[in-house]
Computed example of a mutant assay.
Amino acid sequence: MRRRTLLGSAPLWAASAQAQQEELLLVNAPYPPFVLEARDPIGEGLDVDIARAALARAGYSVRLALVPWRRALQMLEAGEADLTTTISLSGERERFLLFSEGYRSTVRYHFYSRRGSGLRVERLEDLAQVSLGYSAGFFYPPAIKQAVGRGLVEGRDLEVTVRMLNAGRSDLIVVNHLAGLWTIRRLGLEAQLERQPFSYSSGSPTYMALSRKRHGDGRLLNTLNEGLRALVKDGTLARLEARYLPP
């Protein structure tokens, strides 16, 4: 998916007084279950709810705009939006983004093939024998892409990537383990696709990020981090995860 130690933070009561019910624009692309399509009966998505709960404690409201992921990054760079969620840390992005503290400690990547394909991927080196589908604009550990021997196939988004696999346009796809399973189930493709035994864990946490152009003074970042810590402490984060990610 997407670490930083902060040197200090303003008290939440002070941030709340400054916020005065200010509305923040959160931009992201659909990435279930973290960000869901508009009017999804479950809600706007796990990470959208986490951001809203963390910032509401300081008096901020959050409005979600769904746009393609590359457009979301462009809006943040230009100062046209305030924040995003579900993002991986990278040096290039630090140029125009301020990253929160990590709120998920690791990301697991799973690999799916068409059922009955005869493929068996048990280690990273086995990727040398396949073409691999992935979703545009999202971070994948370099070791995965570098191991692929028969070419990379880019999908516009996760749903397209899964459909391309089912149509035979790639041998295999790599997905965030939660987002991938959610999407496959929603598309009704559990019988057609199967998960390979190999999985890859990245030690990189998942972050939220603020536009440097709009919030470069760090005050909103401090507020966001305090809110995220509070959600962990009072159990709100666990309750939100249980709602979107039942056993």
Rank of each mutant, 00 (worst) to 15 (best):
Y60I: 07
E241K: 15
E77D: 12
G116P: 07
F198A: 02
P247L: 11
L210I: 09
S113N: 12
P11S: 14
Q18M: 09
G102L: 10
Y103V: 08
G235Q: 12
G133K: 06
A29I: 02
V107M: 07
Q146V: 00
F96L: 08
T106C: 13
M208K: 12
I50R: 05
A209S: 11
A128N: 11
L98N: 14
E22S: 11
E44L: 07
T5I: 13
E154F: 00
S201L: 13
L237F: 05
Y112M: 00
R186M: 05
D82T: 12
G188M: 01
L46R: 09
G180S: 05
N176Y: 08
T86H: 08
G235P: 14
A128H: 11
L46W: 01
D217T: 02
D49H: 09
E23T: 14
L245A: 08
Q196V: 09
E44D: 14
L187I: 00
Y140R: 06
R104G: 02
M1W: 10
Y207I: 01
Q146R: 15
S135P: 07
Q196G: 12
G116T: 03
P141V: 05
V27F: 02
A65F: 02
G188H: 01
P205V: 13
L158N: 09
R3D: 07
R195Y: 04
